[in-house]
Nucleic acid binder design. Structure first.
Lengths: 115, 115
DNA sequence: TCCATATTTCCATGCTACTGGAAATATACG
DNA sequence: CGTATATTTCCAGTAGCATGGAAATATGGA
């Protein structure tokens, strides 16, 4: 991943409203949520939400699809993964005792199998 | 982790100069790098670097220690781990097939053992 | 003590992003 | 076709952040 792309994604997330939206969509998984539903849950103005969704979408962190009158938003997990990978690229300078717990956190916070 | 804390850390990273510094320190591992060495490698003005280091330190992403005339900066891997964990918290809505590759990326990009 | 190195602080300018109200667009339904 | 719902676009005022020059502080060595 390119540096500027990572910056634009981090910038998109570096905002209380947008980070809340993104985490909500991450938790919602593949089904996603309609814009109105997000606005209701987070209690934000629809125009503010729209702007924030636009920033997240432009950064490639979320996708949208129309469904009737609603527009459903979902997290883009592939791009999220790339971003996390970029942050830890070539990390630790050869100290696996630092790096291992870094990998462990995803297994813990995530619904990934307990393998 | 609190939302506002995560935002402040993401904000600190959402900047080309600071992200470059942070990744450099992540790669440097526990030994860290002196401010001057960072400035030399990234070719930035010392005052600009100082401001950026200050932002990263204030966000808890890096630590500093004096060593002679130099000040050595190191990444704060614990806080980095917390941030990554916050982003993926309760993720995927019960879809391990999405979450597993998310965890996998750390094993791949990182020096963690191939266990 | 004097000087060189290392890093930080101060400061002024310009730019970019956030906010919320109001209007506009798009879809669905009777 | 007219109305209700869902979402977006437009706009203007405000505030916070980045930048780079110059000076200040701190440590080490002669």
């Amino acid at each position: 991943m390119e540096l500027t792309l990572a910056v634009s994604r981090l910038s998109a997330l570096a905002h209380e409203g947008r980070l809340s939206v993104f985490r909500l969509l991450v938790q919602a998984g593949v089904l996603g949520l309609a814009a109105g539903e997000i606005a209701r849950r987070l209690e934000v103005l629809p125009n503010t939400l729209s702007a924030n969704l636009n920033v997240l979408a432009h950064a490639g962190l979320i996708r949208s699809r129309r469904q009737g009158r609603s527009i459903i938003y979902t997290a883009n997990f592939d791009h999220m993964r790339d971003l996390l990978g970029f942050l830890v690229e070539d990390c630790c300078g050869g100290s696996p005792e630092i790096c291992s717990p870094l990998a462990e956190v995803l297994r813990a916070a995530c619904c990934a199998p307990q393998a």
